[in-house]
Design a protein around this nucleic acid. Sequence first.
DNA 1: TCGAATTCATACTTGCTTGGTAGGAATTAT
DNA 2: ATAATTCCTACCAAGCAAGTATGAATTCGA
Lengths: 177, 177
Amino acid sequence: MRLSKRGEYALRALIDIGIASELGRPMLQVSELAAKEKLPVKFLEQILTQLKAAGYVKSKRGKLGGYSLAKRMDRIRFGPVIRLIDGPLAPIPCVSQTSYVRCTCPDEIHCGLRMLMLDVRNAIAKVLDRYTLAEIVEITLRKLRRDKVTPLFLQPSKGLVPILPPELTRKIIVSRN
Amino acid sequence: MRLSKRGEYALRALIDIGIASELGRPMLQVSELAAKEKLPVKFLEQILTQLKAAGYVKSKRGKLGGYSLAKRMDRIRFGPVIRLIDGPLAPIPCVSQTSYVRCTCPDEIHCGLRMLMLDVRNAIAKVLDRYTLAEIVEITLRKLRRDKVTPLFLQPSKGLVPILPPELTRKIIVSRN
DNA sequence: TCGAATTCATACTTGCTTGGTAGGAATTAT
DNA sequence: ATAATTCCTACCAAGCAAGTATGAATTCGA
Ligand code: FES
Ligand code: FES
């Protein structure tokens, strides 16, 4: 019944990018993300590549590159993300809605275990397929504010993190001309 | 989010023993069980040993030996069995009620993932910790009868399976005296 | 008392999965 | 040009899953 590290890191990353984005820093670098969440950089890199391939995030390469969300936060549900990374939600293949596989039970129709596990799978899916990233980000942000905690991404990390998001900075520069 | 084969077999065995028991055949042999469910004998043996050590079944050795339930079916809940065999129900250790372990998140209190996974873990536990073996057996039996299917354990396997449960047989013999 | 049938205990195996590292190529801002 | 980044692919070590294998201990019927 367990979520892999890969899955865990993927979700943490998504949530963080979401929070940062909501706070006006839509693009985060892998190194930054890894440092704040204390994750192995290269491993996280792989995971983000996978999230990108599936269309959850988009990336910008080269200097000042990074990752940002590729779709609206309220369109990202957790179920599909976990299915992408860890496989089906169902505890047993014969109750998976997205990738059914027959199991070795002689009589599937009268299988008590199947019945039970179907309930479990539905319970899991009901949670994961209904929550959106937007909701989690919103709740987290509310909690942070309530407790007057400064989110990690607003604290300068190496002293050279731009306070303003790139677009704004550019606008200012442009307006100077 | 997956139940191991070990866990699957354990539950299938338990349910089968329960059904057989309800039908007046409280004791089943490993070989019999394995044949009916098409499971590897020696593997199942190990699993039953584990279930025995945990007090779910009891065994009788030697010829005419076998396994039977060690506690009332309505006192056997699935959650604890799965925890025994597969470990905690929680997808992530920081939300496990039975074996909490801190995870690497910098701020557990404001962790969105934790919040989400807590919901998942509760959803799972709500199903598995509330259903009892008695309920599952009862429902299965009802289905079988509705569809007029003869449960496997009432079909003679080697031609020498006693039709009547041992107690009854004994009673009849005694009453003959 | 013997032999067959069973559970019990323990060690081993084989392949797969997890959780990463390592090294370097491609791209981009300055 | 250079530095900083993402991208790509290969590799790796340890552990785990799902069994096998072997034999000892127990129990029954004949
Ligand atoms: S049919 Fe899938 S567990 Fe029985
Ligand atoms: S605190 Fe456990 S996942 Fe964040």
